[in-house]
């Protein structure tokens, strides 16, 4: 409950930033909002609906009021309700994010644990090497290399594009594999690293020595004692890493031509479509904060010392 209360100011702060971002820029916000091809009539209309002649606090109030009703404004570029626009684009992005998350956890946690257990060996060095590498190669370079190899040379996957789940599971997943792998590289690097570091730290704890002194086999000590205790930091970073995932989505969707929220963001920026930019930031940040809230709530299952 306390945790829930703490997220409200954060969300409020995000909304405030998004609001201020537009008002702080020089020039007429109404003109900015209407975009490059806004007509004078549209500008006047916006001025009216946002109450731009009112004091800034009143404007903030109107804006917040609309926000709470789920009204994210009008896109003058796409000529649509922004809320509607976003709902249309949600599926590909969610699909991409979930497959990436699954791949990441399945790969990163085991290799992180092995690296920690075989600390200092070549296996450990390989994992760490991959991790630094994963952090350093930009998402789009990974994307193009994978396309070049697996789509163009080996022709195992389609080069680009997206099929909805409604079109059948195989076409859907077939087109998601490469983008998800692309997106998961940096995420795996992050999670493998934190898993290794956390497990390594736990392995130095007194209760691990106790577990060995009880005559438990290595596997049991490693999984039941070490990994269980390392779970909180690992899960925390999985949550923080969602920010990385969101940033990656924007790029990956552009590389693979997937019509998701990431592409919407880029298109909105290129078209100077501010209502959409604002909305996308709010949605992404809101999701990010909520995911981290959910993760915080799982702590009490993972660690009996944490109570809310």
């Amino acid at each position: 409950m306390r945790r829930l209360a703490a997220t409200i100011p954060v969300l409020g702060m995000v909304a405030l930033f998004v609001f201020l971002m537009l008002r702080m820029t020089p020039g007429d916000p109404a003109a900015v909002l209407a975009g490059d091809n806004g007509t004078p009539q549209q500008i006047a209309e916006i001025r009216e609906t946002l109450g731009l002649d009112e004091p800034i606090l009143v404007q903030l109030g109107i804006w917040f009021g609309d926000l709470l009703q789920g009204d994210l404004g009008q896109s003058y570029f796409f000529k649509k309700d922004v809320t509607e626009l976003i709902l249309l684009r949600v599926e590909p992005t969610v699909a991409l994010a979930i497959t990436t998350l699954v791949i990441t956890v399945l790969v990163a946690v085991p290799i992180g644990v092995i690296a920690a257990y075989r600390h200092g060996t070549w296996l450990d060095r390989c994992v760490m090497g991959f991790s630094v590498f994963g952090f350093s190669v930009p998402v789009f370079v990974v994307g193009y290399i994978l396309i070049y190899l697996f789509a163009m040379q080996f022709k195992m996957f389609p080069v680009q594009g997206y099929k909805e789940l409604a079109d059948g599971f195989w076409p859907f997943i077939h087109r998601l594999i490469l983008p998800s792998i692309t997106l998961s590289v940096i995420y795996i690097a992050l999670i493998a690293r934190i898993t290794r570091a956390s497990v390594l730290e736990v392995l130095g704890e007194d209760y691990i020595r106790t577990a060995y002194a009880k005559g438990l086999p290595n596997r049991v000590v490693l999984l039941r004692h070490a990994l269980r205790n390392a779970a909180v930091p690992i899960v925390t970073v999985i949550g923080i890493g969602v920010a990385l995932l969101i940033s990656g989505v924007v790029v990956t969707e552009s590389v693979y031509n997937i019509p998701g929220l990431g592409r919407l963001t880029v298109d909105a920026v290129l078209g100077r479509d501010y209502p959409t930019i604002q909305a996308v930031i709010l949605v992404f940040s809101g999701v990010y904060v909520l995911i981290n809230l959910l993760i915080d709530l799982t702590y009490s299952f993972l660690d009996p010392r944490i109570r809310y």
Binding site: V10, G12, V14, F17, S247, V269, F284
Partner: peptide, 23 residues
């Protein structure tokens, strides 16, 4: 710290994109 929490809640690249697009 509240301000920082708010800033951290916006994924970095998104924030950067938005800031660039404004000017």
């Amino acid at each position: 710290m509240r301000v920082m929490d708010g800033l951290m809640a916006i994924p970095g690249i998104l924030l950067a994109i938005a800031l660039v697009s404004l000017s």
